[in-house]
Design a protein around this nucleic acid. Structure first.
Length: 918
RNA sequence: GGGCCGGUCGUCUAGUCUGGUAGGAUACGGCAUUGGCAUUGCUGAGGCCGUGGGUUCAAAUCCCACCCGGUCCA
């Protein structure tokens, strides 16, 4: 079902879907927009829906209240609190509870969990209100320019499950919103317009009412009533209201400032304006942004084409307008970008070149380049401090991250400088080389070095940007194929959840259970089991079930499936005994608890931006990927290891309890989601004496001392922003250390040294090898004239052309020697042909030199080639020098004999050719 | 998540397509010119061509894997 059909469906019964009590009570009438045919409700007669209106509130807000950003929130918070809503702390902007999103893009996302490809809603309270900071990067170009676009904004989420305790449906929802607008914000009710719309999501849909004041959309109440598809749908058991309203806009409507940025970033903008000494023409600004609001539409979404038109209507030149507006556009953009970075970094995201981090790096560099372009000496981290100072009233947690945010911003700013220097160096070399660049060159430079054609044009490396550049670039990115990982699933309809004995008693290794179902003779489902299934990065248990080997255990929903190595002849209903491989489970368990300890140890050592990215726990070793901006050095690794082992030695208790998700999140914060998405309503919290607290379904030791020792084997940067630690714990650590020692022992034995002095001995050996190499070179240089002259004397004179031939087979010296000697020999004797056959491990090498006179008749390359072919290989070269080789060592004698013959033949050939030429 | 680019004396780089003695610049050492310096000339030292495999008589060069750095897109 498409959006249009849905709209028709709901409009056909608008009294059922859109009419709410308050409309009746307050005299709102349904009307049709004469421009776009949308239906809307308002108290006054209107020709158009608010989509076609100017922002008439700019300069003259429709209320007597003036509420800045934070005060607007406080007002709304108070209102909903007094109407039985729980006020929920904001969720992180980094969306750790959904695999399909990097960032939280709307308030409703907080309460959505994906379970088996279906979205389910889980509200920690009902009804509730949340000031959810949300990040969106799809409209970056308009940020700072339009007065209302952001990369981050606060979406006030009024969320309600209509069918749960305390729930309400559309009448109450709109009544509350109406009251909020009129009583709390003081807006005249005849200014409010509700527009009918529909909402269509994955597997669910509903209708919505958007509310506008003076052309500005303030909020949208979505009523998700149905689930299913066009062919079959039904009313949901738990209908959901998702009302989202932008705090920036709610504040803006009361303030009537030129832009909403003046509200959201009020004190920040003011400080920057003061510091930079910018003068403000409020009159022109108000008129300009009012004009923008009316003209910016889907037809004209490029603000730059609008600017000349607006300048004309304001009666000033384009330059004059630009002079007034540009500094503010810059300040607004910087304020927006820094606020987004502040929230993202505080919540544990890092700028990088992959994943969501890329968006952060883009806006960070964008902000810096604006600062550069304006010539302003302002640091991003100073702006984030201003934000923190303002927003801490609403979001006190930001203050804890002040230093960490500064650290990351400084680091990234420095990286930008480095990358900028590289860009300039490349541009300069292009300019100096005076090379013409093709469109392909430009595309390659952009994609692989980040050098934009705009930059090249600005610095004068190219004359102008080829017209085809952007279309070519767009073409390159239209085709994208996304690889889907396929997971094996079993049809398990009607099977009861397996009782997880491994949770009830983590020490249980033997149990008796009844077989519920068998497929393939190999996949066994039991009524209960002590086998831990694969999950959360922990490898499954192995062991024995009814005498058969279990090689794999997986969990699908709440059902655990055991895979046997071979087909069994068990029957359903039979009772069998299970035995879990104890050694394996113990070792995996130690590695798992060690992962938690290391994770917190890394965060304490490195900084609060460290989160677990993923982890893997095997019998023999563990792997922990953490988010961190730079590769680790030896000292950092040692520190992390040290702290982790301190925790082990303190023998802290590991306490596991189950909480409801809402309570766990609000009490322990989102730090608990290190392992990623938890797909259930109750959360198992593993608490290592408050050193580390994580939501985790894995098996753990009772006390940290049980781990024995944790040893980090290595760290590597697997991608930008992610560091992998590989480690061993318990017995695996001991084995690792023993292996290391035995290697060290054998190295020191080979060196004839002791383990204590092995480094010293090795360095000495390397030094000796190097000096020996040098000595050989010197010796060769010194003796080569003497060897050359003796070669010249012993060479045999050929019957023709005064040419001498020297040939040798050498089993001891290498080609470097013969190249040096050959070179020297022909220099000394211009009539000489020097041929060396050199033995190698397998096969042999041929070196041929021809002196200055000899080469007039004899081509060294040809001699080398022919000799090599005889020897089962091939060769090449020029008149002076040729080389080649072959495999047949047994033909050396023959070849050596045939050298003279070959030379004579070659001589006569060139002789006759020479005659022909004459 | 999907791509792309790069890694060669201390530093900057040519050579890679098309396999054949790794070359230049700069800094460094020595000698000469000079009262001294700048300069200039001559000369010397400095390279497991990121690592490991493969192909080949022969690999900086071609193929594969990995490591390190950079970058674009979703």
């Amino acid at each position: 079902m498409g959006k249009e059909e849905l709209a028709t469906l709901f409009a056909s019964d608008h009294d059922r879907y859109y009419k709410v009590n308050i409309f009746e009570e307050k005299g709102f009438k349904r009307q049709k927009c004469s421009k776009c045919a949308k239906f809307f409700w308002s108290q006054t007669e209107r020709e158009f829906c608010p989509d076609h209106e100017y922002y008439s509130f700019i300069g003259k807000p429709p209320t007597n209240k003036r509420l800045d950003y934070v005060d607007t929130w406080k007002e709304i918070e108070l209102f909903f609190k007094s109407n039985n809503h729980s006020i929920i702390r904001r969720y992180p902007v980094v969306c750790r509870w959904r695999d399909d999103l990097y960032f939280t893009i709307a308030s409703i996302v907080d309460f959505q969990r994906i379970m088996e490809n279906k979205v389910v809603f889980e509200l920690p309270s009902n009804p509730l209100l949340v000031p959810q900071m949300s990040l969106r990067f799809n409209d970056i170009e308009n940020v700072g320019l339009t007065g209302r676009h952001y990369t981050s904004f606060c979406m006030i989420g009024q969320t309600c499950n209509a069918d749960a305790d305390g729930g309400y449906w559309k009448d109450r929802c709109i009544e509350l919103d109406y009251e909020m607008l009129t009583n709390r914000l003081g807006i005249q009710s005849h200014e409010i317009v509700f527009v009918e719309d529909v909402w269509l999501g994955a597997g669910a849909f509903g209708y919505s009412l958007e509310y506008y004041v003076n052309g500005l959309e303030l909020g949208n109440a979505v009523f998700t009533e149905f689930e299913g598809n066009e062919n079959s749908y039904h009313v949901m058991d738990n209908k959901i209201i998702d009302m989202g309203a932008g705090l920036e806009r709610l504040s803006w409507i009361t303030m009537g400032t030129p832009t909403s940025y003046d509200c959201a970033f009020g004190p920040i903008v003011q400080r920057l304006v003061d510091r930079l000494g910018i003068s403000k023409d409020s009159e022109i600004m108000s008129r300009y942004f009012t004009a923008i609001s009316g003209r910016l539409s889907e037809q004209i979404n490029d603000i730059n084409t609008l600017k000349p038109l607006i300048a004309k209507s304001l009666g000033i030149s384009r330059d004059e307008l630009s002079k007034i507006i540009s500094p503010f556009e810059a300040i607004y953009t910087i304020a927006d970008h820094t606020r987004t970075l502040l929230f993202a970094i505080a919540d544990g995201a890092l700028p990088s070149n992959v994943g969501g981090g890329y968006n952060l790096r883009v806006i960070l560099r964008r902000a810096i380049s604006i600062l550069e372009k304006m010539g302003w000496d302002i640091k991003l981290e100073d702006v984030t401090d201003l934000h923190i100072d303002y927003l801490k009233q609403m979001y006190p947690e930001l203050e804890e991250h002040t230093d960490d945010v500064r650290t990351i911003l400084r680091l990234e700013s420095d990286r930008y400088v480095g990358s900028n220097e590289r860009m300039h160096a490349i541009a300069t070399s292009i300019k100096n080389a005076n090379r013409q660049l093709s469109v392909d060159d430009l595309i390659r430079m952009y994609e692989s070095d980040g050098i934009t054609p705009d930059f090249l044009e600005r610095v004068g490396a190219i004359d102008k940007i080829p017209s085809t550049f952007y279309t070519r670039l767009a073409d390159l990115h239209t085709e994208q194929n996304i690889a889907q990982t396929h997971k094996q699933t079993y049809s398990l309809a009607g099977i009861a959840p397996t009782k997880a004995l491994y949770y009830e008693d983590m020490s249980m290794r033997e149990f008796r259970a009844k077989i519920i179902k068998i497929t393939d003779g190999r996949n066994i489902i039991l009524d209960q089991t002590a086998f831990y299934p694969r999950g959360g990065g922990q490898e499954p248990d192995t062991g024995v079930l009814g005498g058969m080997q279990v090689i794999e255990v997986v969990k699908q929903a709440d059902i655990i499936i055991h895979k046997l190595q071979n087909r069994s002849n068990f029957v359903e209903g039979q009772s069998i005994d299970g035995i879990v491989n104890n050694r394996r489970r113990e070792s995996i368990t130690k590695h798992h608890t060690a992962t938690h300890i290391l994770n917190s140890s890394a965060r304490n050592t490195l900084g609060s931006w460290v989160w677990q990215n993923s982890a893997f726990k095997e019998e023999g070793y563990g792997r922990l990927d953490i988010t961190h901006h730079s590769a680790l050095n030896k000292e950092e690794i040692w520190k992390i290891e040290q702290k982790a082992n301190d925790v082990v030695r303190q023998n802290l208790p590991v306490v596991i309890n189950t909480y409801s998700r809402g309570n766990a999140e609000q009490y322990y914060t989102f730090r608990i989601y290190q392992g990623g998405v938890v797909p259930s309503n109750s959360v198992r919290i593993v608490n290592i004496n408050n050193w580390d607290i994580e939501a985790c379904g894995g098996t753990h030791v009772r006390k940290t001392g049980d781990i024995g020792i944790i040893k980090i084997m290595k760290s590597e940067r697997i991608q930008d922003g992610i560091i992998r630690l590989e480690f061993v714990a318990g017995e695996a650590a001991l084995k690792y250390l023993q292996r290391q020692e035995s290697q060290l022992t054998s190295i020191s034995q080979s060196l004839g040294s002791s383990k204590e002095k092995v480094v010293e001995s090795l360095q000495k050996m390397i030094y000796e090898t190097e000096t020996t190499k040098k000595k050989i070179k010197t010796v060769l240089r010194k003796i080569s004239p003497h060897v050359a002259s003796s070669i010249s004397n012993t060479a045999r004179l050929l019957p023709k052309g005064n040419i001498k031939v020297y040939s040798i087979y050498d089993e001891e010296l290498d080609e470097d020697y013969h190249i040096a000697i050959g070179e020297k020999s022909i220099e000394l004797d211009p009539y000489l042909i020097y041929v060396a056959l050199i033995s190698r491990d397998q096969g042999l090498r041929v070196i041929v030199f021809a002196g200055e006179h000899a080469r007039k008749k004899i081509h060294a390359g040809i001699i080398a080639k022919q000799l090599s072919i005889e020897l089962g290989g091939s060769g090449r070269g020029n008149e002076r020098f040729g080389q080649g080789g072959g495999r047949f060592k047994d033909k050396i004698g023959d070849s050596l004999k045939s050298v003279e013959e070959l030379v004579v033949k070659e001589f006569s050939r060139t002789e006759s050719e020479g005659n022909r030429d004459e």
